[in-house]
Design a protein around this nucleic acid. Structure first.
Lengths: 338, 338
DNA sequence: ATGAAAGCGCTAACAT
DNA sequence: ATGTTAGCGCTTTCAT
């Protein structure tokens, strides 16, 4: 039972290929009798039009390319899941690629996707790309008029639709929340200082401090490199000043911070409040459960997919949009009660 | 700068399309001078062969379809990541689909993938599919000679390559481990009793009990339905007998069990030992950290991808293989020390 | 109501 | 060394 083609069906009925094509597509041009016979035959023999031929003919694939830096990160998984949901509803498929935070892989991937394989692309930049600030590969896509939506890790140098988390605002409001709680010596632990996202959060934090007339102290910002020892840096930090609030910019780091703080004998909540970014499963189940900034990854993904699909289907003007997803704070047990 | 074709290049140089094709593919048939000129022109103008045309011509897509039930489940994410890694290394792309545990969606997805979009398919069955035991959609693929690899949630009724976790053995060894610890009243909490995977683990558990001459008591098996209240069922269970070991068949359930047991005043480790299946991030960071059965998801994914690629590239015999991934126990703090 | 022919972009066997 | 032709499977004018 090999794949069957229009040609074969045509031979069976001794008609032309185009007749069969029309019959199968239920064209009114074909007589009722012949049409039903052909349709029935097609169904019985499980005829399926060859997608490759259709793609070539119609110059579209009904496929969206998705490039994420790392799928093992729950936030990106959530976004992916949101994209999938919308894409599926609207009849699109997902060609998924992982850049592994590598610039080179990202370039190759986008080059590939630009080759006609997909109708549009959704991407969040690799860390290395953000670091290098090289955006040519995105520009190439734009030059070829391939619809592109960037999310979360975006660049001002690329003119396309974007969906971002309001990281500045999130940093600001998180710091504010600490201040309202009565915390005054606020540290930040960032494992993502390379990225715009991380820096925006710190900027928001600075603004909150300045509004409260608290001088900014850079030594309270712990910037964690790939090979750094968090344990060690944390103990330096904790010895430096009597810290009563820590904001950790990703979930794993937040959980680690929690562990270290506990291990060093501090009482989380009473002595030190901790808030993490990214509200994933860990935050909920860790002890004490972690107050966290939710970035609504799934919703973000849905928004990105909708934006792209609208663009692909020409239902948007020529101006690019930047949609901003509001964060929200999920209060749990790692912060003082109000 | 719209996409450029061979035809356009041919016009520029006043040669035939096939000459250009050959030149670009660096054929020896073309004179050095012309060849380099064309190649240079192509490069400058960023010529990229149209993938759709190539696919049609060569009747392959260098794409693998992956269908997983749920990407928000860390195990599947790991598998996916493993597949991606190998696929990428071998020059394949991934068309990813999520069945959402739905039979219907799985059927539609496979129908779509069978339409020529991919060269081969890797799939783990939806829960509903396992429950209904309807395998026609897989059989259809096989009939059309589309290479298929099933993993983790597989069916004996589908004759194809498979990669599975040794769940029977895992259940057996986990129960054994409890017994060695001195635990004798072992409960199982299963939220996946619909699936082969869940039942195999329970079967392994039974074997270990019988070897130790402990009679099997079905009331110690807590089968959790979608809408059931774990909290309530757990308290019934804990009141039923003095349980000293609990084996939870998925990570979230394990973590919940841990929480409930703690909340009811039992000392995890001393009073009750808990082992979870699936060694994800949660297990590591929860308090107390959870002893867990690792299924080596990434490795499983790599194996599945390798198996499929070998099959697609015809480097395997006609017999189908079933590769078995051994589990291993990651001992942490939720179990008694030996 | 049916069919012939062109074409999507590319490759490759077969001329010249 | 270069060109011609056919064809991958399908849709879609434009005849008939």
């Amino acid at each position: 039972m090999k794949k069957m083609t229009l040609k074969e069906i045509a031979q069976v009925f001794n008609v032309s290929i185009s007749t069969v094509s029309k019959a199968i597509n239920d064209s009114h041009e074909i007589s009722y009798g012949l049409k039903t016979k052909i349709q029935q035959y097609a169904k019985e023999n499980k005829y399926r039009p060859n997608k490759l031929a259709l793609n070539l003919r119609q110059k579209k694939t009904k496929t969206i390319g998705v490039v994420v830096p790392n799928i093992l990160n729950y936030f990106f998984t959530q976004v992916f899941s949101g994209i999938e949901k919308v894409a599926n509803e609207k009849g699109y498929n997902l060609l998924s690629c992982i850049s592994d935070e590598s610039y080179e892989k990202e370039v190759k991937t986008l080059e590939f996707l630009g080759g006609g394989t997909v109708d549009g692309i959704i991407v969040s930049m690799a860390e290395e790309t953000q670091f290098k600030s090289k955006m040519d590969h995105f520009q190439n896509l734009l030059d070829e008029h391939i619809p592109l939506v960037m999310f979360d890790r975006v660049s001002d140098d690329v003119l396309c639709d974007k969906v971002v988390v309001d990281d500045y605002e999130a940093g600001y409001r998180t710091a504010k929340y600490f201040l309202n709680l009565g915390c005054t010596t606020l540290a930040v632990v960032s494992a993502i200082d390379q990225s715009s996202v991380g820096r925006l959060r710190v900027d928001g934090y600075k603004k909150a401090l300045s509004e409260a007339d608290i001088p900014f102290d850079d030594r309270l910002i712990l910037r964690l490199g790939k090979k750094d020892d968090l344990e060690l840096l944390m103990s330096l930090l904790l010895n430096y000043k009597q810290i009563d609030g820590i904001m950790a910019l990703d979930e794993i780091t937040a959980v680690e911070v929690l562990r270290i703080v506990k291990a060093r004998g501090y009482k989380v909540q009473e002595d030190i409040s901790v808030i993490g970014f990214t509200n994933g499963k860990l935050s909920r189940y860790v002890t004490p459960s972690l107050t966290a900034v939710s970035q609504h990854g799934t919703y973000l993904g849905e928004t990105a997919a909708n934006t792209l699909i609208e663009r692909m289907e020409g239902r948007t003007g020529k101006d690019f949009s930047t949609r901003i997803i509001k964060t929200s704070l999920v209060v749990r047990d790692s912060t003082k009660k109000l």
